[in-house]
Design a protein around this nucleic acid. Structure first.
Lengths: 188, 188
DNA sequence: CTCGTCGGAGAGCGAACGTTCTCCGACACC
DNA sequence: GGTGTCGGAGAACGTTCGCTCTCCGACGAG
C-alpha cells in the first residue's frame, strides 16, 4: 500500500465515521481499524487528528458540491435549475445514512475550538452560496433572491436531519418556486 | 447551599460552558469549578453527565421559547407578529456570545449517540414549529406557509452562526414578508 | 546467506475523561 | 465536651484519548 492509497483509505474511513457518529466521538484508533492503515503511516500522512479532520472536510466539500452541481447543471439554465437543487437535496435526505450537513455538524462541535475547521465550514457555505448566486444570474433573477433561496436550503438540511423526513426538501422547493414566481418574471 | 440552588448553579454553569464550547469539549470538573458546587452534590443532583446535558437542553428550551414568545406576543396578532420572530432572531444573533442554535449544535454532537438528547432536540424544534403555526393561524394565514417560514428561521440560525453576521435575520424577514405578500391577503 | 532498511502490529506514554471514595472539619444533639 | 451526621475538597480509580515508541518479520542488494 503506497501513501496515496493509505490517504484515500484513511479519508474514506474518517468520512464514514466522522459523519455517522460525530468527530469527537470517533477515536484515531477506530479510524485505523476501519481503514486498515497502520498507526505509524496514519501519522505520516496526517500529523494530527485535526489535520485529518480538515482533510475530511475539504474532500467532502469538493465531492458534495460536485455532486450537486453535476445534478443541477444537467437541467436547463433558469428557474428549473434552481429548483433542481431542492430535488437533489430531497434525494440526499432520503439516503439511509443521511445525518444532516457535515459542515453544520462539524461547526457545532468544533467551531468554538478549532479555527481551521470553522474556516473550512465558512468556505463550504460560501461556495454553496456562490453557486446559487450563479444559478440566479443564469436565470436572469435578481440577487435579492439569493438569501431566501440559500436560507431555505440551509433550513431544509437541518430540519431533515432532525426530523428524519426528506419531504421538507419538497416544501422548501415549493417555497423557492413561490418566491421566484412572486418576483418579476425572468428573461429566461 | 441547598439542593435547589445547587441545581440552578450547575445548570447556569453548564449552559454557559456547553453552549460556548460544545458539550463534549466541556468536562464535569469544569462545570464543578465554574458552579462552585461540590462533585459529590453534583452527582446527587445529576447522576451522570448525560442527565445534566438533558436538563440543560430542557431548561434552555423553556427559556428560549419563553423569550421568543414574550417578544412576539407583545406585537399585534397578524403578519406583524410573524415578522417579529425575525426581529427577535436578529437581536439574538447580535448578542456577543451567540453561537448558533444550541439544539442544532447538540444534535450534531450527540444526535447519533444519545437518543434522549436527540429527542429533546426534536421536541424543541417541534415546539417552535407549533408556535409559528399558531401565529399563522392567528394571522388568518394558511398552514402552507408554515414550512417556508420555519425553514427561513432555521436557515437564518445556522447561517448567522457560521458567518457571524446578524443581518441574515433581516433577509429572512424580507423573504417571509414576500411570501406572506404573495399569498392571498389575510383577513387580519 | 548476510546485512540494512522498511513498514506493520501493537504496547506504552502522559493527560484527561466520567465517576467514586476518603478524609476531615462543621455543626446538631445529649 | 463527646458523639454522630453531614457535606465539601479533592485524591484516586479505571478507562480512553491522541500520539510515540519498540519490536520484529519481509525483502532487496551484495
Amino acid at each position: 500500500m503506497d501513501q496515496a492509497e493509505a490517504r484515500t483509505r484513511l479519508l474514506d474511513a474518517a468520512e464514514r465515521l466522522f459523519y455517522e457518529r460525530g468527530i469527537q466521538a470517533v477515536g484515531v484508533d477506530q479510524i485505523r481499524t476501519a481503514s486498515g492503515v497502520s498507526l505509524k503511516r496514519l501519522y505520516q500522512v496526517f500529523p494530527s487528528k485535526s489535520d485529518l479532520v480538515l482533510a475530511y472536510l475539504q474532500r467532502r466539500d469538493t465531492r458534495w458540491l460536485a455532486s450537486l452541481t453535476g445534478y443541477a447543471d444537467a437541467r436547463p439554465a433558469g428557474d428549473e435549475r434552481i429548483l433542481a437543487v431542492f430535488d437533489w437535496l430531497h434525494a440526499w435526505f432520503g439516503e439511509p445514512d443521511f445525518r444532516g450537513c457535515a459542515f453544520v455538524n462539524a461547526f457545532g462541535e468544533l467551531g468554538a475550538t478549532d479555527p481551521a475547521a470553522a474556516e473550512a465550514v465558512r468556505a463550504h457555505k460560501g461556495a454553496l452560496r456562490d453557486y446559487l448566486g450563479g444559478l440566479l444570474r443564469l436565470a436572469g433573477r435578481p440577487q435579492s433572491l439569493l438569501d431566501p433561496v440559500f436560507l431555505l436550503a440551509e433550513g431544509a438540511m437541518t430540519t431533515a436531519a432532525i426530523t428524519g423526513s426528506p419531504e421538507v426538501a419538497l416544501r422548501a422547493r415549493d417555497a423557492a418556486a413561490a418566491l421566484l414566481a412572486s418576483a418579476a418574471p425572468a428573461a429566461a
